[in-house]
Design a protein around this nucleic acid. Structure first.
Lengths: 332, 332
DNA sequence: TACGGGGATGTAATCGGTTTCATCTGTGAT
DNA sequence: ATCACAGATGAAACCGATTACATCCCCGTA
């Protein structure tokens, strides 16, 4: 079997309490004694059993992360960002996926016993306005909200300024002379979709004879669904001259549709995305999109959780990361 | 504080042992008693503390997964596959990432105390021939090897038949009349790269005056690096007529390079990939590639680990999943 | 010299379960 | 009636750490 603290204590000629103190509260043990203990530990390759430690202290080394999926590169990046920072603090990440399904995401949160976790990082896009607050408040460990949720009172959160990004984009398109815009969005049930649509509405103003907007609803983050939505737009007797997609996967699907239908981009129609996933710069034509620093978002979320764990009382300032328009070929 | 087993025992008028048995070995307790206990548990919303349970049984509900990265969609899919199956068995996944760096991946394996884990699922592409066996054998919990490692004696493993896939592909290209092939590979230090190159070599036969092969080395899984490698190939005085990329990200980068240089695909040069990531069907032109069932690979790996946990002695049969050539536009 | 106090260490309780072993009860065989 | 035995349950040890509390020793001070 593996080596226990008792073995170390015996070998060093001290009690288990002293060994434990030598490791966790060095100032409480005589330097000389401590040195001897550490030597024994070193030689025996002793590592305290994390389960026993967790049980007696009530502290684990695990953080839970709730995501809809990992196959969407956006979430994969966030996850990687979290991992990077937490790794530096000897914390490990338990990933819990909810398939962007509301009930499911709730279950997923509950499926992991919170006594096993130090905290949560949640990017639960499926929460609806109605129930997310209740869910969050029922948690017994600190949670940080990462993207996709409006600022929930009392919970630290970090997200990208997508509203600003879409407002700028809309203004820019109008200034460039576009008078008929297409919008391909995810399901309006999702908060991020709603937020982005609202930003666009705000900038495009009320319906007018001057400006037309045609909306298509697609499945969030689905290439195929973006392709089909674009097909519908391009089949209109008078198609839009610019199509705003609410995320890059939809936009890449749209690009594909245009290519298949022999519609030149940006010649006959402009296409834009959001997120700036790595592939966005490598499509043909390269995708004009709004860069969201998703990796950094993950890092920030992790840092925020760490801070929260240190000083649980301090009131959390929401962190909002700026986005940047990346003008590439699909919309000049 | 939260409810403990003692509270339940007291409320039901039995000992803690009986409560524990009612939950874990129902046949040992009188049906009537059991019913009463379960009622109390239900009413109190009691859930046994997983840490205490783990400490006393030596069994956790956590499985560790080692991956180079999550931002490569291939690994994200594997991860999602694992998650899907493990979730059905109340097991959660701790993701450990090594950045496809050899030493790092080793550290990552050790960073997670194995007493906290039930088993490992490893897709550690960075292991070199030299040390992976030693590392694997030092593990104290069952491990399943997922893709990217040759069959290690004594460890269950599951991978795709990429060798077969590349052999078929090479033969097909020769039959189609190609006499100058380009190959864009990842770093030859990686085992998957080596395996795929070997398969190609086998089919293309020895260097001959008849068949030319030009090789370019790129960074594994990097779009940018694939683009640059393709640039170099296309700048040759007599470029290859078909370019085989060892994975889809390299191939998508290559496609981009051709587009930038106004080289028509498949008109002037054919391009193929491997993996069939979702984006492969949506590039312009759509990528001809070898479909590797990576999601299923993850599922199988998880199932294999589960089986291994049930019957630790049984000798593990390697599982090899078939691949399929997806002929699309980039190489007809 | 006696006493108070602080520092180093040890003893044992504790975290919240599981499980071994002992006890008790009731049943069937002798 | 007695005994063996099986089934249900309880008491207490155990998993492997941390930590509250007790103890001991030494020093400075009255």
């Amino acid at each position: 079997m593996s080596i226990k603290i008792r073995d170390i204590a015996r070998a060093a000629g001290v009690s288990t309490a002293t060994v434990s103190r030598a490791l966790n509260q060095p100032h409480l043990v005589q330097p000389e004694t401590r040195k001897r203990i550490l030597a024994v530990i070193e030689e025996a390759h002793y590592v305290p059993n994390p389960l026993a430690k967790a049980l007696s202290t009530g502290q684990t080394n695990l953080v839970g992360m709730v995501l809809p999926t990992l196959t969407n590169p956006v979430f994969a990046q966030m996850a990687e960002g979290c991992q990077q920072v937490l790794g530096l603090h000897q914390l490990n990440l338990v990933t819990l996926m909810g398939q962007r399904d509301n009930q499911n995401e709730l279950d997923v949160l509950r499926s992991m016993d919170q006594r096993q976790l130090k905290g949560f990082i949640i990017s639960g896009s499926a929460f609806t306005m109605d129930n997310y607050r209740e869910i969050l408040d029922s948690l017994q460990i600190p949670a940080v909200i990462m993207e996709n949720l409006p600022e929930p009172a009392g919970h630290p959160c970090v997200y990208c300024d997508d509203s600003q990004g879409f407002r700028n984009l809309a203004r820019r398109l109008l200034e460039a002379g576009h008078r008929h815009l297409g919008i391909i969005s995810g399901q309006p049930g999702f908060l991020d979709t709603r937020r982005r649509l609202a930003a666009l509405d705000q900038e495009l103003g009320p319906e007018s004879t001057d400006i037309r907007v045609t909306r298509e609803t697609a499945t969030y983050g689905s290439l195929e669904s973006g392709r089909r939505a674009m097909e519908r737009l391009l089949q209109l007797s008078s198609p839009p001259t610019a199509v705003i997609c609410l995320n890059d996967l939809l936009a890449l699907g749209a690009l594909r549709a245009a290519w298949e239908m022999n519609v030149s981009v940006p010649g006959q129609v402009c296409v834009t995305g959001y997120d700036d996933i790595p592939m966005a710069a490598y499509s043909s034509p390269a995708l004009t999109t709004i860069h969201a620093p998703n990796l950094e978002l993950g890092r920030q979320a992790a840092r925020m959780l760490l801070k929260r764990l240190e000083t649980p009382t301090e009131s959390p300032e929401p962190v909002i990361l700026p986005v940047e328009l990346m003008v590439r070929q699909s919309c000049l």
